[in-house]
Structure formats: structure tokens, C-alpha cells
Design a binder for these strands. Sequence first.
DNA 1: TTGTACGCGTTATCAG
DNA 2: CTGATAACGCGTACAA
Lengths: 395, 395
Amino acid sequence: MSAPVNKRVTIREVAAAAGVSTATVSRVLTGEPGIGAATTASVLETARRLQYRPSAAARRLRTRSSSLLGVVVQSLGDGYVGEVVLGIQSRARDHGFRPLFFVSEGQTRLEAEAVDVFLSEQVQEFICVSPTQKPHILRKAVDNGFHVSVVNWDPNISAGLFDDIERGSAKNTARFGSHSVEKSIWEVKFDDLGAGMLATNHLLALGHRKLAHVRGPNVRSSLLRLLGFRRALEAASLWPQPVVVAEDPVLEARELAIADFLRRQHPPLGIVAYDDLSAVAALRAANLEGWRVPEDLSVVGIDDIPFAAYTNPGLTSVAQPKPELGALAVDLVLAGSDEPPLPRVLDGHLVVRQSTASVSRKPDGGAIRRPSRKAVPATTGAADRTRSRRGNGVT
Amino acid sequence: MSAPVNKRVTIREVAAAAGVSTATVSRVLTGEPGIGAATTASVLETARRLQYRPSAAARRLRTRSSSLLGVVVQSLGDGYVGEVVLGIQSRARDHGFRPLFFVSEGQTRLEAEAVDVFLSEQVQEFICVSPTQKPHILRKAVDNGFHVSVVNWDPNISAGLFDDIERGSAKNTARFGSHSVEKSIWEVKFDDLGAGMLATNHLLALGHRKLAHVRGPNVRSSLLRLLGFRRALEAASLWPQPVVVAEDPVLEARELAIADFLRRQHPPLGIVAYDDLSAVAALRAANLEGWRVPEDLSVVGIDDIPFAAYTNPGLTSVAQPKPELGALAVDLVLAGSDEPPLPRVLDGHLVVRQSTASVSRKPDGGAIRRPSRKAVPATTGAADRTRSRRGNGVT
DNA sequence: TTGTACGCGTTATCAG
DNA sequence: CTGATAACGCGTACAA
């Protein structure tokens, strides 16, 4: 029908072809009221026939607004961000906005550049998904007059607070990770504390009485999940329980740290992992030590990343409402409210797969045929509750 | 120092403050030659002082070019796309371009919309990562005059061709998935055939003589990987070997289909899986049937998605050069060459982890302490090479 | 209900 | 080497 054109079709050509003025075409296309039905139809028809595409640049120049929503993500690929992005995109569309993505690769330099790009592009609102711990980008965004929403900003926490929760009285720990910059920022976060409790209570409900926690890095979410673990156990009068610390973030290191811990334990045991990747480390450690999952060891993760369904066995996990987090961030930042920006916290929900089971369950009595396999007897049993050294160790 | 401004700083204000004309400011900022060093410095200084940001919209309107590179990606669940995107972004930057991402969620409707958006935004070049099988979006992009690069376009293939390779002579199968649209498109693809051979040869080198392939869906990559499996075995005079077909793409269904197959086999066995997710299904099936990996069963995946490092045990896989695929797509589409667009094929490389081992390896002789576990003896051993029915079955 | 004319911020062109 | 000015494509106040 129509050949590819090298030159853009402008509003003038549409107007000429339809026998009306450019103003009329513009009004029809922007949906302004007060245009005759006949002309409207005619204009729409010729615009379509000529393959007319309004120039976003000209429109923005004239309008001084872009309906663009700047979104900074660390990477588009880790599965977690991807699902948050889905929520952002869908809700932005509902508001008549289009997300403009900027991939920061976790580099501070690129994060700073993102703000410049957004400024040049007349981006109107600003959303940041899991930014780096340093608040530089948020500071810069706020300084340049942006409304900002942050999804799961996870600032660093001093190691001392972790000790307080593990061994101290754990009082007055209601607020963590407060930061001066937060005052002008809408924070949307996952209920990390509740997730820790949910995971722990799940194991308690399954009859587990001996539990352990695999701690995450020194960030807020890590602290809160640990606290949730403690709270749930305190409510059941089962506190304290051991906390495994693997400061080396490499999978194999964490796996070995957990295996080291398992060697001093007896089944059945329940593990609440900081996140799904930690849970994977636990699954591998179990394999290493000959513990069967879930017969000897139940493992719960947190986050429910897409891969949780693919672990072996499938990982029970407390799911973050990822698209909802993104959608809420859009709502807040577009509302442009002048209320003091209170952090919004969304609840997680438990997704039960095959990595957790009731302790009363017979060792080989599952529905799935599974070869018998001797559990390795615990070895020393000593030094359970003494941190061996600074570094990978057990509390 | 400077308060956040509500109104944009324009080039005129910079010119006034620097005591020069707007033309001079423009020339300095765009890096045009022929401006005095003194004025250049002065302009740069005042621009910085006033926090001047050139308006991308005005620039594009005037220049009629945007240095924008439209990138359409599918949903981002498996981390694969994320790594390709990294390569795209980095190389685009080298060329002075900025990627404009559009997430299609795999929906044809959104893919079509992407073209419209890119047209409105004056996007200059077009890259599509793993589009849906339907070539609608490519057709539309080409019709609108875009130069197009496609990374790993995986068109549907008729089931008959698979039968040819599995049971036929496998001649004249050099070209698959040709499509009329391809003529005006730069295709960048992974060497699926070579990957299938690489994976198979790896198992052969480990001493495996009894192999099997887990087939993928009816798409080109699936066909080529199967062909690679066959070619490598033919070269070793070991063809034919069984091919497991699980048409239901759900993980559990594939797991059961593979378990069903294993039940008729004896260890040691080597499995070349269509992709890493299929390999995961094989790992889980092995667990179900009591086969130890890698002592009884070696499993190789293809793609090397990020999660491959987290499976239990870690998955040996043929890695796609993901960033390089993205980078090459950028180079090709920006070259604007008039040469006939020949498809470019990039090689994979083997990443050895713990899911494969030599068949001569003693069952429990690994470096890692692993509890002994009896291999389940094969049951019937019959009907190995007869497809049971249409659907999940074994060839 | 529709048309005319101006300006959004920038760069290209032409003078000087 | 630098300045004045038109034009890019569109939306809108104002006039008709």
C-alpha cells in the first residue's frame, strides 16, 4: 500500500490533505472537544492514511511537558527488577505516562548521568528501583526538583545493630536506615520484618522447634528480616536460636559456612534464609552434608525470585509483591501530593513449594518416590553458640 | 549553593550571562571547531554555573536526529536479556547513542506500539532482542524505514523437520527458519548448532558413550541444537541416541517426562539439554529417580543463564556471549551498510561446573564429601526407542 | 466550529 | 572567529 517514507509527515500535510487547518488537526488528535463529528472522522482517516506520527520533540517543546517517567534500575536482567518494572510500566500507562528506563549497572557514575539525561529529556517524575546504598543519586534528583519514589532502598547498617538484635535486648529498633534525604522522597518498601516473621512462623507451624537463620549483608532489609526471625521465636518462647553469618557473599563461601554449621546440628532443622540466594546456598550445603530436604531440613527463602520455582527441590519462599511495589511507586510519585512522604510498606505472602515439610512427616513417606539416604549424624555438637572468628562463622 | 529551579535555563540566558550570542554558546556546547579558547572557557564556565541543560526536545526538533537507539526486549525473567542489554548499552555509548528501551512483555500489541513510539521519538535505529516468533514487529519496523538488528530471533519450525533430524538422513538442513522479512534485517545469532556439538563433545570427552538429548520447543534454536547433538555423535559413530520430548513446557511436566525416561536407563548416562531450564528439569528428574549427579548422570545445559551457577549441583553449560551479541547488533545497525545483511553467528564456550564428570570417576571419590547413595537399578529397560504417544514421550 | 499567527529552545545559514 | 535570524513541528490564544 504505502511505501516507507524518508521524510516525516507533518501536521501541515495532514491538514492540507484533509482540507482543514493545522489547528483543527491538532485539536482532533489531542482529543479536544468542540470539533464536528464529520471533520473529526475525516481528519482521523487522513492522518491514518498518511501514516502521520506526531513529533514527540515538537510536542514537548511546545507543551513543556513530556509525560515521561524516569526509571533508574540497576539491571534489567535479574528477574526481580524485571517484575517490578512490569508493575511500573503498566501503572504508568494507566496514568498516560511512558517509562523512560535507564540502566545504571549499579555504577554511581551512571546513576548520576541518569539525572542529567532525565533533565534533558524533561522527565517529569523519578523512580529509582533498588539504588546503590549511597544516596548520591537521590540527593541529586531531589536537588534538581524531582519528585522521587524509591522502591526498596536498602541502605547500609552498622554491624553493631545486628549484634544488638542477635544478642542484645532488641529494644527501640523500630526505625532503621533513616536518612536525611528521605524527607523529600516517597519510599515504597517490602515488609522485611513481617517477611522474617512469616517465614519463621511457617516453620513453627510445621512443628519445627530447632531453627536457624542465615544472615544477609549489613543492610536494612537484612536487619529487619533477622529481627522478624527473632520476634517470631520470642513469641513462641524459643529465642535464642543460632544465626549463621557468611560475610563473603560468594555462593560457595556461603555454602561452606552453612555446611560447617550443619555439621554441628541434628535433624530435623528449619532454616530461615535472608533471601532466596541464601536459601540456595543452604540447599547446596544440605546436599554437601547429606541432609535431605525437606525430610531432615526445611528451608524458607525470602523474595520469591523467579528462580525459586526452579531450585531442587522447589523453594518455599515469602514473595514480595513486586509489580505492586512498582505500581505504588508510580501512584505516589504522580500524585504530586504535598503530604509528608510516609514510607509505604507492602506485605509479602508465603509461597509453599517442596523445600519445607512438617517434622512429623515420615522420612520417606512423601508422595514422591525418593531413594532412602542416611542422614549424616552430627559430629561434634560443640561450640554451637560461639562465633568462631570474625568472618564466616556461627553465632 | 544553587537552589532547585522550576524553570528551565535556556541557551539564551547562558549567552546573556556570558556576554556572547546564543550561536556561540551552541557552537561551544556542540563542540564545533573555530571558537576562541577564551570564549570557550567562559561559556563552559557560565553554563556549568547556571546548571544549564540543553533541551533534548528542541535539539531533536532542529537537528532532525536524536542519537536514539530503540531497543525492544521481551519480559525479563531469566536474566538472559539483561546481559544482552548490557552489551547494547555499552556499545551504543561508544557510538554516541543512547538506548531507548521498550519492554514488550512478549505481547504482539505492545511490540507494535514500540514501533509507533520509536517513530514519534525519532529513534534512528532499531534493535530487537528475542522477539516473539511472529515477525509482525520486524515487518512493521522495516516498512517504516528502520534499519533493524535482531538478536536471536527464534522463529517457529515445523515439527516435521525435527523428525527428519531425529530419524531421517539429516541432509540439506543447512538453512532453517529463513523468512522473507530477513532480507532487510541484520540477524545476530548464537551458534546453536555449534553449541549442541560442544555440549555433546564435552560429554564424549568425559568418556560417556550413552547419551540422550532433551529437546526444546519447535523453534529454530531447538532444531539446530538437536542437529549439533546428532552431528557430534555421528562423528563418533555413536548415532542414534535417544531424544526426550516434553511438549508441555511446564517444569514439572518436563521433569516427569525425563524421570520416566531415566527409569528405563542404566547409569552412567550423559544428557545434553536444549537449554539451562531443561537441564534443571533433568537435575530434578535425577533427584526424583535417585540418580546421583554427576556420578550417575552428567548434565549439560546451553545458554549459561545466571542461575546456572546456582543450581544444585552447579550446571555445566555452553555459554552464549550475551554482551557480545548485543554489541554486535549495535555495530551492525549503526554501520548503515548497504551490503546484503548476512546473518552473523557468534560462538559459545563451555563453562564447566559440577553437573558433569568423567565416567571413570569413582562413584564416591570426589573431593567433596558426599554420602553414599545407591543408584536405583533400571526397571524394564524396554521400549527405549519407541515413541510412546504424541506428547511427552521418548524417541 | 474553525482558521491565523506566534513561540517553545535549539542549530544552521549567512553576514560581518 | 562571532552575531543575527530563520526554521524545525506542534499547541494554543485569539480572531472570525
